[in-house]
Simulated scan of single mutants.
Amino acid sequence: MRTIDLQAEIVQLSYLGVEFEDLCGAVRSLTLAPGTESRHQLTSKILAANELVRRTPAAAAPATGHAR
């Protein structure tokens, strides 16, 4: 049976939470106006959000008892 280092898992999930909070702050601080620059700013934030969402199940797997 595989043992889980819960402290390491807590740290990893906490770091992921901080990344989500930072991204939320970055999105809220955007000053947007119609145009290409706004689209570029939003696209980079959407891609960052997608990456965080992609990483979340793998980060939570050990804490829920599922393999990565």
Rank of each mutant, 00 (worst) to 15 (best):
E37Q: 04
K45A: 07
G35I: 09
A49H: 13
L42S: 08
A49L: 15
I4T: 12
A67L: 08
H40Y: 04
A26L: 07
A61F: 07
I10N: 01
A49F: 15
P34I: 07
E37S: 04
A48P: 04
Q7K: 06
T36L: 15
P62H: 07
I10K: 02
S44C: 01
V18T: 07
P34T: 00
P57W: 15
A58T: 02
A60F: 11
Q12C: 01
Q12R: 05
R28T: 09
E9K: 01
R68D: 12
E51W: 14
Q41Y: 03
A26R: 05
L47T: 06
L32D: 12
A67K: 10
R68E: 14
N50C: 10
F20P: 02
L32W: 12
T64V: 14
V11A: 06
I10T: 02
C24N: 12
Q41P: 09
D5H: 05
I4D: 03
P62Q: 09
D5G: 03
L16E: 11
L32I: 13
V53I: 12
E19S: 00
L6N: 14
T3C: 11
S29E: 07
S38V: 08
E21H: 01
A33W: 09
Q41R: 05
Q41W: 03
L30E: 02
V27H: 00
E19T: 00
P34S: 01
Q12M: 02
Y15H: 06
A8C: 07
M1C: 13
